[in-house]
Each structure stands twice: as structure tokens, then as C-alpha cells.
Write a protein that binds this DNA or RNA. Structure first.
Lengths: 152, 152
DNA sequence: TTTATTTAGTCAGAAGTTCTGACTTATATT
DNA sequence: AATATAAGTCAGAACTTCTGACTAAATAAA
């Protein structure tokens, strides 16, 4: 004698929904904090660059591949970041077709601030939910990522 | 004597990164499968509707609030879904200004298929990483979501 | 019970993110 | 040397979401 059908995703709490909610929350907090700390130009899309750029610099195409974006999309993001002095884009000495993208001082400062804020938020959440559970969560997320990669 | 600075997010594995990766993977697989199963029109943005729509139907404004979107954005998504016969949009008998959005047969079929695929993928991943760990993961994700909500 | 306010939704326009297709130039292969 | 491949660019479009201004209906206040 069911009163209301539990057949809708919100109640069903799919794994996807469970992952999405905290991710969104975290993301929102983080970028708001970065804006407050003097990096207001950075939007979530730009993380595609910051996540993958190498300390010695990276090529546009390389970044595009790592971020799973087209070269055009990556070029768009990089143009914006160059304009706002987060990266510099110069010629690649080894290949006249290619460009070398490097973090500027400001770009490095942004990453440092983002990492610090992220760790602080994680630590605070850890205090609330328990550090052991947070550690379990991390391990389980790594395992999940691995498991999904092995899926047929 | 550090050789390469570990100061970049990809290596740092922030909690955000750990959540994002499997979420993206899951999402990608799920929508590809839905397309293969006869629902090619549905894109991730539309989940904002399916996640929140009530069995008896919902109002546009209500859906917008639940999804944390503007009414205009929700109207855009609903228009598309109505065109493709996933929802019907009719007048609300209780309020002449309002509209009532209901899932069509096709909309219900989509949700059913999405849920089934999601559960199947989760079960398969569970077989690989261990069902106990998957259960731990679910619990930890709920705890994390709760903890983030309690953050200052 | 008029008047004022709030609520539901629309219209117009824009910004941002990402895509496809066609192209140029430089490098690598044959 | 001729051909194929790789790095990026240019032009244009689709999609997602936003802001601001608006209409019409419902609710609250005077």
C-alpha cells in the first residue's frame, strides 16, 4: 500500500546524485572564496587549465587532450587567462607551430590559494563528520574511480 | 631535494577532484546509455527537471527553486522537454498564472531507464571495488553532504 | 473594496562554454 | 620532393544560464 511512488531520482539517491551534491557545494564555496581572495576572474571552467598545466609549461593541444576539450575550447580559455595574467602564452622553442603555456606569478598564486582553501574546507568538514570517515571517503572515491575505469 | 613541485591540483587530489572524476565518468556513461536506449534528446542539464519533478506534477517556479535556476532557465529546459514529449505543460487549476508540469509516459520511461542503468552501473562497480566499500562510500557521501551544509 | 504588493511566468538580450568544419603553417614520413 | 600528420586559428553555431524589464493574476492592506 504505497502512498507515493519512490520512483524519482531525488529520493532514489543514485550514486551520481550523492557525488554531485557535495561537489557542487564544494565548488561553489571554493570559487566564491577565490573571488574574495583577489581572484574574481576565475570560473570553474578554467580549472581545466589549472588542473593540468605542468610546472615547466604545457602545450595548448596537450592541455586540450588532458582536459578532454577541443583545441578551440582550450584556446578560448587560455586567451581569457592570458588576458587576466594567469598564464603567459609564448612560442615553443622546439616547434614553430606550437605554443607554450606557462603559469604566471598570479597563476601560481591562484593555485596555491585554491589548494589552501580546499584543504581548509576539507579539514573543517573532516572535523564535523570525523576525520576517519573523511579518510575512508577519500579511499573509497579512489577505489570508485578505479572501478569505473575497469567497467566494460 | 625536490625534483618536481607537487604543488599542482592534479597531483594534490583535492576532495573536489576526487568527487568530480567519478561523477563525470558516471554521467558520461549514463547519458550515452540513455541515448542508446531511445532517449537521445536528454542532456545533463535536463536532469534539473527530472530530479525534482513531483509525481503529481510541479510548477515551473517550484522546479526552478529546487534546481537553483532562474525561472527563465527552467522555462527554457521545460520548453525543450515538452517539444520532445518528456513533459506536458498545462494550466494550473488552482492558479491562473501558474503552469503545471507533468511527466509524460515517455518522461516516466526515461526516469525508469535512467534509474535502472544507474543502479546497474553502481552494482557493477560495487562488484569490482567490493560491495562493503561501496556501501561505506554511500554513507560517507551522505555524511560529507551533511558536514558541508553545517560549515560556517 | 479599491489600492498596493507580491507571485507566476514571459520577452529580449547577453555572457559563457563548448562544439563542428574549414583552413594555414610547420613538422614528420615516404 | 611529395605527402601526410600535427598545432593552432577563424568563423559560426548550439547550448546553458544569467539580468532586466514586463504582464497578468492573486494576496494583503488601507
Amino acid at each position: 500500500m504505497r502512498v507515493s511512488p519512490p520512483s524519482f531520482p531525488e529520493q532514489a539517491a543514485t550514486l551520481g546524485a550523492l557525488l554531485r551534491r557535495p561537489y557542487r557545494q564544494l565548488s561553489g564555496r571554493l570559487y566564491a572564496e577565490m573571488a574574495a581572495q583577489g581572484f574574481p576572474e576565475i570560473r570553474p571552467a578554467h580549472s581545466a587549465v589549472f588542473r593540468h598545466i605542468a610546472p615547466e609549461g604545457s602545450r595548448l593541444t596537450e592541455l586540450a587532450e588532458l582536459a578532454d576539450l577541443t583545441k578551440q575550447s582550450m584556446a578560448y580559455l587560455l586567451g581569457y587567462l592570458e588576458e587576466h595574467d594567469y598564464v603567459s602564452i609564448g612560442p615553443d622553442p622546439a616547434d614553430a607551430r606550437a605554443k607554450r603555456v606557462r603559469l604566471t606569478k598570479r597563476g601560481n598564486a591562484f593555485i596555491k590559494a585554491l589548494l589552501a582553501a580546499s584543504q581548509r574546507i576539507e579539514a573543517e568538514a573532516g572535523k564535523i563528520m570525523g576525520r576517519a570517515k573523511m579518510q575512508q571517503l577519500r579511499e573509497a572515491l579512489v577505489a570508485l574511480d578505479q572501478a569505473i575505469a575497469e567497467l566494460p
